[in-house]
Simulated scan of single mutants.
Amino acid sequence: MAGADGIYSVVRRLVFAPHAEAVRHFGLSGVGFSTANHLGLDHRGALWRTPGRAVYMFSAADPDRTAVSLSFASDSPALDLLDRAEQERITRERMAGAGWLVPRLLEDMSAATDFSFSSACQVHLDRWWEGRVVLLGDAGYCAAPTWGMGTSQALIGARTLARHLAEPGEDHTRAFEAYERELRPYVTANQEIGREGARRFGA
């Protein structure tokens, strides 16, 4: 059985460890969405920071749109589990009084159809498999939204696991061991970049 059910993995909680032991929070949460390209960015980004708060904007594929991240200091990843209305309320509360484009971006946030909320967290486990259960992607080794790589790590992990499981005569235990041995250095490097990203955004 493969657990690939995200950072709050039920499989991981039932077989490996509770969330409190596996999930490391870096003191940073925030929202992401897209809106009009207010700054006229062209394949460039803009970062605004003040103690405990940050805004990052980036425009690439569509010159009329920009991706926005509003980040703020937080003390728990539990904010991720709230509904959108409560996440928006908390974001407005934490970003209140900020200057620059923040008031306008908070208005844009409410109208966004691609709203997402996440905290800067990583998943750390001594082992990614137990018995006949193995973890993939964020469930086993989230690198933190401050670096991304969630989809890449999941796809590379799935391919690596499948390749080892397909080895002639190799049982699942050896396949799981080989999968983790091959992938862990890559994950470790991405997690270090994720921690650096959290520090850069003020966590």
Results as ranks from 00 to 15, higher is better:
residue 165 L to N: 10
residue 104 R to E: 15
residue 94 R to T: 01
residue 100 W to H: 13
residue 161 L to P: 02
residue 154 A to S: 09
residue 167 E to C: 11
residue 105 L to Q: 13
residue 103 P to W: 15
residue 85 A to M: 01
residue 160 T to E: 14
residue 125 L to K: 07
residue 98 A to V: 14
residue 177 E to W: 00
residue 176 F to G: 10
residue 166 A to F: 10
residue 132 R to T: 10
residue 167 E to H: 08
residue 168 P to Q: 02
residue 158 A to L: 12
residue 171 D to M: 09
residue 126 D to R: 13
residue 177 E to Q: 11
residue 125 L to S: 10
residue 129 W to A: 06
residue 138 D to N: 05
residue 171 D to I: 05
residue 142 C to S: 08
residue 122 Q to C: 04
residue 84 R to P: 00
residue 161 L to K: 02
residue 159 R to H: 15
residue 104 R to C: 12
residue 92 R to Y: 04
residue 183 L to W: 01
residue 100 W to C: 12
residue 168 P to L: 04
residue 121 C to W: 14
residue 75 D to E: 10
residue 131 G to Y: 02
residue 183 L to F: 02
residue 126 D to M: 14
residue 175 A to D: 09
residue 75 D to H: 14
residue 90 I to S: 05
residue 148 G to Q: 06
residue 120 A to Q: 02
residue 175 A to H: 03
residue 162 A to I: 10
residue 144 A to E: 05
residue 133 V to K: 07
residue 169 G to H: 11
residue 143 A to N: 07
residue 133 V to L: 13
residue 126 D to N: 13
residue 173 T to W: 11
residue 167 E to W: 05
residue 172 H to P: 11
residue 132 R to K: 07
residue 120 A to C: 02
residue 178 A to P: 04
residue 91 T to K: 00
residue 171 D to Q: 04
residue 158 A to I: 05
residue 94 R to H: 02
residue 87 Q to Y: 00
residue 147 W to S: 12
residue 97 G to W: 04
residue 104 R to N: 14
residue 183 L to P: 04
residue 105 L to S: 05
residue 77 P to Q: 05
residue 142 C to N: 09
residue 135 L to K: 01
residue 102 V to H: 10
residue 131 G to R: 03
residue 146 T to N: 06
residue 121 C to R: 06
residue 114 D to A: 10
residue 92 R to P: 00
residue 84 R to L: 01
residue 107 E to F: 14
residue 79 L to S: 01
residue 171 D to F: 12
residue 82 L to K: 02
residue 173 T to F: 12
residue 126 D to H: 09
residue 136 L to C: 09
residue 82 L to G: 06
residue 167 E to D: 13
residue 147 W to F: 15
residue 103 P to N: 15
residue 157 G to R: 03
residue 152 S to P: 11
residue 112 A to M: 07
residue 168 P to M: 05
residue 158 A to Y: 04
residue 110 S to V: 14
residue 175 A to T: 07
residue 172 H to V: 13
residue 97 G to H: 08
residue 116 S to D: 13
residue 119 S to H: 01
residue 180 E to G: 06
residue 160 T to M: 12
residue 76 S to G: 12
residue 173 T to R: 10
residue 131 G to Q: 06
residue 137 G to Y: 11
residue 163 R to W: 09
residue 122 Q to T: 02
residue 107 E to K: 12
residue 168 P to R: 00
residue 116 S to Y: 08
residue 134 V to R: 02
residue 180 E to T: 09
residue 143 A to W: 15
residue 115 F to V: 00
residue 80 D to G: 01
residue 151 T to F: 14
residue 117 F to Y: 06
